[in-house]
């Protein structure tokens, strides 16, 4: 029989579905019987999902411009290196 401690140790692999089938079955049986572990599993899954689901903030426009300008400078330098100095 799996204990709650065993379940916690495996919770990450269980969430990623990377445990071997026997262990997965044991974990599944445990979670059906144990409301605490069910809640912990459910809230761990939600934790991962809420991080995954939140849209990233836009990069401030001034920063975006600065970056594109810095890249453009390198691009110009590269172009000149390829074609030789301007006449």
């Amino acid at each position: 029989m799996l204990t709650c401690k065993d379940f916690l140790r495996e919770i990450s692999d269980y969430l990623d579905d990377t445990c071997d089938p026997t262990l997965r079955n044991d974990l599944q049986s445990h979670i059906k019987e144990c409301p605490n572990c069910w809640v912990v599993f459910d809230t761990t899954k939600k934790t991962v999902n809420v991080y995954k689901g939140t849209e990233p903030q836009a990069v401030p426009e001034t920063v975006q411009k600065r970056i594109l300008a810095a890249i453009e400078k390198r691009q110009e330098a590269k172009k000149q290196a390829a074609t030789g100095p301007p006449k």
Binding site: L8, R9, I11, S12, D13, L15, V40, T44, T47, V50
Partner: peptide
């Protein structure tokens, strides 16, 4: 794997 497990459980706790 071990850091991921701890990080997930730690964040779960805080959230």
């Amino acid at each position: 794997k071990s850091r991921l497990l701890r990080a997930r459980l730690d964040l779960r706790e805080r959230l």
